[in-house]
Design a protein around this nucleic acid. Structure first.
Lengths: 158, 158
DNA sequence: TTAATGTTTAGTAAAGTTGTCGAGATTGTA
DNA sequence: TACAATCTCGACAACTTTACTAAACATTAA
């Protein structure tokens, strides 16, 4: 149940991009600062760009920059772009639901596995979809509404 | 962030084994009941046996059986046997800790990634290490101590 | 003995992970 | 214009993991 290096590097890159929010930095700067293999990093930055999180400018003085306010980008969004759905099994994913092919419970009203794994997916999404880049670099999950059934930012999808 | 088929099949097999707790059933019965490829299933049952969860008897009338009371086996244990640690990155695992090789935060006192991922690992382990096979087949997390800081079964490891 | 079972070792096709390489396209500056 | 720094894009390759299958063998009950 691991996240890939891709997600890890991507998140580390976003730490750097968030620190420099407002002006572009080069892949080289990011790679050096965060110790990420530069050509692999490029792929990752491209994915994040295509997902609409980054903008890039070419040429001298070029580089990548974050185009959304750090508090509006959640770690959940980033990880879904780079690693796919958060859900531990397909039949509990909200972004990429896949019905179980030959699960004997598929046609019944209740599946034990689905029940537990649904809980796991929600626990993961509750954290990652409520944790922004701003929280990330400051190290605090800032003033989110408390848990315990209070209204909270919707645990978007998984 | 998926669990493998191995874990999924293993858990489905354990549903069957829990239902028949007390006497052996054959891989064939399990395979048919749960629609799991039989030869692959065998590997899985062997792993669970080596982990001390199952016993097997050979020959006619043989089969596999659960040797621990269903309420003493947690889903977390099972998944760790079949899929490895629950932790999403090595440096937050309690069962299989691996220090980050070249993370620039490795030598500092605080790592943002470690902070968030530690939370994720605990959320997952809190569920899976407190959910027994008994709960699993009954579909209810029975009378576990409530959340909210109350004493609860230790979230063992990940 | 024989048939039903588990045991063990090997192998393997497909997919995923973690990268590298190289030929361009674009841009600011001299 | 020429040049150098940068991003862009597609290919590809080594390695690992996943999800299996095959086959020879060991054990047991009837």
């Amino acid at each position: 149940m691991r996240f890939s290096k891709k997600s890890e590097y991507g998140l580390r890159a976003l730490i750097e991009l968030t620190k420099h929010y407002g002006h572009p930095i080069t892949r080289q700067q990011i790679a050096e600062e965060q110790h990420v293999p530069i050509v692999f990093l490029e792929q990752i930055l491209l994915s994040l760009k295509h997902a609409g999180l980054l903008a890039s400018t070419r040429g001298i003085q070029g580089g990548y920059q974050l185009i959304k306010p750090p508090k509006d980008v959640t770690l959940g969004q980033v990880i879904r772009v780079l690693d796919g759905p958060l859900a531990p099994i397909g039949c509990v994913s909200k972004t990429a639901y896949r019905k179980c092919e030959d699960c004997p419970y598929a046609k019944k009203s209740y599946c034990p596995l689905q029940h537990v794994m649904g809980g796991v997916r929600n626990a993961i999404a509750d954290i990652l979809d409520n944790y922004s880049l701003e929280d990330f670099i400051s190290g605090t999950r800032s003033n989110r509404p408390a848990r315990l059934g209070a209204v909270r930012r919707k645990s978007e999808r998984a």
